[in-house]
Protein backbone atom coordinates (compact mmCIF):
# COMPACT_ATOMS: atom_id res chain seq x y z
CA UNK A 1 0.00 0.00 0.00
CA UNK A 2 1.26 3.47 -0.82
CA UNK A 3 1.34 5.55 2.31
CA UNK A 4 2.71 8.84 3.40
CA UNK A 5 2.00 10.82 0.27
CA UNK A 6 -1.13 12.92 -0.01
CA UNK A 7 -3.11 12.46 -3.22
CA UNK A 8 -2.40 15.00 -5.93
CA UNK A 9 -5.23 17.08 -7.42
CA UNK A 10 -5.20 14.75 -10.44
CA UNK A 11 -5.53 11.71 -8.20
CA UNK A 12 -8.41 13.33 -6.36
CA UNK A 13 -10.13 13.97 -9.67
CA UNK A 14 -9.58 10.36 -10.81
CA UNK A 15 -10.81 9.08 -7.44
CA UNK A 16 -13.99 11.07 -7.92
CA UNK A 17 -14.40 9.60 -11.41
CA UNK A 18 -13.80 6.01 -10.24
CA UNK A 19 -16.17 6.56 -7.33
CA UNK A 20 -18.91 7.82 -9.65
CA UNK A 21 -19.28 4.40 -11.31
CA UNK A 22 -22.64 2.85 -10.34
CA UNK A 23 -22.66 -0.45 -8.48
CA UNK A 24 -23.60 -3.14 -11.04
CA UNK A 25 -26.07 -4.86 -8.67
CA UNK A 26 -27.44 -1.83 -6.85
CA UNK A 27 -27.18 0.92 -9.48
CA UNK A 28 -28.75 3.48 -7.12
CA UNK A 29 -25.43 3.42 -5.27
CA UNK A 30 -22.13 4.66 -6.63
CA UNK A 31 -18.91 2.86 -5.74
CA UNK A 32 -18.10 5.88 -3.57
CA UNK A 33 -21.40 5.48 -1.68
CA UNK A 34 -20.58 1.81 -1.18
CA UNK A 35 -17.09 2.64 0.11
CA UNK A 36 -15.21 0.13 -2.02
CA UNK A 37 -12.68 2.37 -3.85
CA UNK A 38 -9.66 2.34 -1.56
CA UNK A 39 -7.17 4.44 -3.50
CA UNK A 40 -6.28 5.78 -6.92
CA UNK A 41 -2.60 6.40 -7.65
CA UNK A 42 -0.86 7.81 -10.68
CA UNK A 43 2.21 5.61 -11.08
CA UNK A 44 3.57 7.36 -14.15
CA UNK A 45 2.11 9.75 -16.72
CA UNK A 46 -0.85 7.92 -18.25
CA UNK A 47 -0.58 4.97 -15.85
CA UNK A 48 -3.03 4.62 -12.98
CA UNK A 49 -3.55 1.95 -10.34
CA UNK A 50 -6.89 1.63 -8.55
CA UNK A 51 -7.34 -0.36 -5.35
CA UNK A 52 -10.79 -1.85 -5.00
CA UNK A 53 -12.12 -3.93 -2.09
CA UNK A 54 -14.96 -6.44 -2.44
CA UNK A 55 -17.97 -6.22 -0.17
CA UNK A 56 -18.14 -10.01 0.15
CA UNK A 57 -15.20 -12.29 -0.71
CA UNK A 58 -17.25 -14.05 -3.36
CA UNK A 59 -19.01 -10.97 -4.72
CA UNK A 60 -19.37 -11.62 -8.47
CA UNK A 61 -19.87 -7.91 -9.17
CA UNK A 62 -16.20 -7.13 -8.60
CA UNK A 63 -15.23 -7.97 -12.17
CA UNK A 64 -17.92 -5.73 -13.62
CA UNK A 65 -16.85 -2.94 -11.25
CA UNK A 66 -13.23 -3.25 -12.37
CA UNK A 67 -14.20 -3.16 -16.04
CA UNK A 68 -16.45 -0.13 -15.50
CA UNK A 69 -13.72 1.77 -13.64
CA UNK A 70 -11.24 1.01 -16.42
CA UNK A 71 -13.68 2.26 -19.01
CA UNK A 72 -14.43 5.51 -17.20
CA UNK A 73 -10.76 6.30 -16.69
CA UNK A 74 -9.93 5.37 -20.31
CA UNK A 75 -12.63 7.78 -21.44
CA UNK A 76 -10.96 10.51 -19.42
CA UNK A 77 -7.69 9.99 -21.17
CA UNK A 78 -5.85 7.52 -18.97
CA UNK A 79 -4.44 4.89 -21.36
CA UNK A 80 -3.18 2.41 -18.74
CA UNK A 81 -5.45 1.47 -15.86
CA UNK A 82 -4.89 -1.46 -13.53
CA UNK A 83 -7.54 -2.32 -10.95
CA UNK A 84 -6.31 -4.53 -8.12
CA UNK A 85 -8.44 -6.17 -5.45
CA UNK A 86 -7.40 -5.72 -1.83
CA UNK A 87 -8.95 -7.68 1.04
CA UNK A 88 -7.33 -5.99 3.99
CA UNK A 89 -8.59 -4.15 5.97
CA UNK A 90 -11.88 -5.98 5.42
CA UNK A 91 -14.79 -3.95 4.06
CA UNK A 92 -17.58 -3.26 6.53
CA UNK A 93 -21.10 -1.95 6.06
CA UNK A 94 -19.90 0.99 8.17
CA UNK A 95 -17.98 2.02 5.02
CA UNK A 96 -21.27 2.85 3.26
CA UNK A 97 -21.67 6.62 3.30
CA UNK A 98 -24.60 8.45 4.90
CA UNK A 99 -25.70 9.40 1.38
CA UNK A 100 -25.50 5.70 0.41
CA UNK A 101 -27.73 4.70 3.32
CA UNK A 102 -30.25 7.34 2.37
CA UNK A 103 -30.32 6.09 -1.24
CA UNK A 104 -30.77 2.48 -0.13
CA UNK A 105 -33.78 3.35 2.04
CA UNK A 106 -35.25 5.43 -0.76
CA UNK A 107 -34.83 2.43 -3.07
CA UNK A 108 -36.79 0.17 -0.69
CA UNK A 109 -33.80 -1.56 0.92
CA UNK A 110 -33.40 -1.23 4.68
CA UNK A 111 -29.86 0.11 5.21
CA UNK A 112 -27.40 -1.70 7.49
CA UNK A 113 -27.35 -0.56 11.08
CA UNK A 114 -24.13 1.16 12.14
CA UNK A 115 -21.84 -1.14 14.11
CA UNK A 116 -19.01 1.07 15.27
CA UNK A 117 -16.60 -0.16 17.91
CA UNK A 118 -18.37 -2.60 20.23
CA UNK A 119 -19.44 -0.64 23.29
CA UNK A 120 -19.82 -1.97 26.82
CA UNK A 121 -23.56 -2.45 26.36
CA UNK A 122 -24.50 -4.24 23.13
CA UNK A 123 -27.37 -2.31 21.62
CA UNK A 124 -29.53 -3.94 18.99
CA UNK A 125 -31.62 -1.47 17.04
CA UNK A 126 -34.67 -2.69 15.19
CA UNK A 127 -34.87 -2.73 11.41
CA UNK A 128 -37.52 -0.42 10.03
CA UNK A 129 -39.71 -1.16 7.04
CA UNK A 130 -38.44 1.02 4.17
CA UNK A 131 -41.99 1.23 2.77
CA UNK A 132 -44.11 2.35 5.73
CA UNK A 133 -41.50 3.08 8.40
CA UNK A 134 -42.88 0.58 10.90
CA UNK A 135 -40.40 -0.91 13.37
CA UNK A 136 -42.39 -4.13 13.47
CA UNK A 137 -40.58 -6.33 10.97
CA UNK A 138 -39.57 -9.98 10.97
CA UNK A 139 -36.84 -12.05 9.37
CA UNK A 140 -37.89 -14.38 6.55
CA UNK A 141 -34.49 -15.56 5.38
CA UNK A 142 -30.91 -14.75 6.32
CA UNK A 143 -29.91 -14.67 2.66
CA UNK A 144 -31.84 -12.87 -0.03
CA UNK A 145 -31.30 -11.84 -3.67
CA UNK A 146 -27.59 -11.43 -2.96
CA UNK A 147 -25.34 -12.63 -0.12
CA UNK A 148 -25.18 -9.11 1.32
CA UNK A 149 -28.93 -8.90 1.92
CA UNK A 150 -31.48 -10.63 4.17
CA UNK A 151 -35.17 -10.97 3.37
CA UNK A 152 -37.61 -9.46 5.89
CA UNK A 153 -41.31 -8.71 6.07
CA UNK A 154 -43.16 -5.81 7.63
CA UNK A 155 -45.88 -7.06 9.96
CA UNK A 156 -47.82 -3.80 9.55
CA UNK A 157 -47.94 -3.17 5.79
CA UNK A 158 -47.14 -6.86 5.02
CA UNK A 159 -44.61 -5.94 2.33
CA UNK A 160 -41.51 -8.10 2.08
CA UNK A 161 -38.26 -6.13 1.73
CA UNK A 162 -34.51 -6.57 1.51
CA UNK A 163 -32.25 -5.58 4.38
CA UNK A 164 -28.58 -4.85 3.74
CA UNK A 165 -26.99 -7.05 6.42
CA UNK A 166 -24.43 -5.66 8.80
CA UNK A 167 -20.95 -6.95 8.02
Amino acid sequence: MVTGTAPTPLEEELTRLAGSVPDPELPVLSLHDLGVVRSVRVLAPGEVRVELTPTYTGCPAIEAMSADIEQVLHRHGVPEVSVVTVLSPAWSTDDITAEGRRKLAEHGIAPPRPQGPAGPVPLSLGIRCPNCGSARTELLSRFSSTACKALRRCTDCREPFDHFKEL
Partner: peptide, 9 residues
Protein backbone atom coordinates in the same frame (compact mmCIF):
# COMPACT_ATOMS: atom_id res chain seq x y z
CA UNK B 1 -25.39 -17.58 -1.39
CA UNK B 2 -23.42 -19.62 1.15
CA UNK B 3 -21.91 -21.58 -1.75
CA UNK B 4 -20.93 -18.30 -3.41
CA UNK B 5 -19.21 -17.03 -0.26
CA UNK B 6 -17.24 -20.28 -0.08
CA UNK B 7 -16.33 -20.09 -3.76
CA UNK B 8 -14.99 -16.57 -3.18
CA UNK B 9 -12.82 -17.88 -0.34
Amino acid sequence: NIALDLLGQ
